[in-house]
Design a protein around this nucleic acid. Structure first.
Lengths: 100, 100
DNA sequence: TTGGTATATCGGGAAAAGTCGATATACATT
DNA sequence: AATGTATATCGACTTTTCCCGATATACCAA
C-alpha cells in the first residue's frame, strides 16, 4: 500500500470521523442485533445514518479506508460490517515515527 | 491546526519525501556553508534541486508543510531554511494513537 | 543605485477528489 | 418467482489539488 494513499484516505473530515466512531462503536452506535461490534464491526447503514451523507458517498468512503488498510469488512447476510484494522493503524504510526 | 489539513499536507509524494529528507539532511543534501542542518535546516534551493519540481511549486509545498506544523523556517540573509518540527510530528503521532 | 540571487506570490490549465442521484447487484422473505 | 432491503457501482457536476511560468519582493554586493 502506497503511503500517499493512506494519507489521502485520512484527508477528509468524514473519513476521520468514521475511524473515530469505529474506535469505540458502543459509544457512537445503537445496539446491533446478530453482530457484535468487536467481532464484525458496524454496518454501512448505521455509519451512513450518523454521517448524514448519501449512501453512495459513504460506501465509497468505506472502500477508500479499506484500500488504505485502515478498516476491514465482513459480509453477514445482506449487511456489510466494517471495523477498525489495528494492524494498518499500527503500521501508520510506525511510518510516522520512523520515516517522517 | 485542523487535523484534516495535516493529513492533506502529507497526501503528496513530494511533500512526504521532503519530510524524509529533512529527517536526515546530512544524508540527502551537500554540506552548507554558514548554516548547519541541526539549527536552521536546509535552504529552499537545495530542496528544490533535489525534488526536480519548479521553484514555485516547492516554495508552496514548504508553506503547506509549515502551515501543518510539520516543519519550521528560519530566514538567514537571502536564504530561508526549513527543518523538521519535532513537536508537530509528535502531536500527529499522538492523534493517530489516541483518536483513530 | 543598479544589478544579481533567493524566495514568495499570482494566475491558470489539467487532473483528482467530493458528492450526489440513479441504477445494478446480492441476499432474504414470502 | 416476485418483492423488499442493504450495499456497491456508475455517470455527472462542482470543488480542490497539482504544478507550471511569470512576476513581485527581499536581501546582498558592487
Amino acid at each position: 500500500m502506497d503511503q500517499v494513499e493512506i494519507f489521502k484516505a485520512l484527508s477528509n473530515k468524514t473519513r476521520l470521523q468514521i475511524l473515530g466512531w469505529l474506535k469505540a462503536p458502543e459509544l457512537h452506535f445503537p445496539e446491533q442485533p446478530n453482530a457484535d461490534f468487536e467481532n464484525v464491526g458496524v454496518c454501512v447503514g448505521q455509519i451512513q445514518l450518523k454521517s448524514g451523507l448519501s449512501q453512495s458517498t459513504i460506501s465509497e468512503y468505506l472502500s477508500i479506508l479499506q484500500r488504505a488498510d485502515l478498516i476491514s469488512s465482513t459480509r453477514l447476510g445482506q449487511w456489510t460490517y466494517y471495523k477498525r484494522n489495528k494492524e494498518g493503524l499500527e503500521k501508520l504510526s510506525e511510518i510516522i515515527n520512523t520515516e517522517l
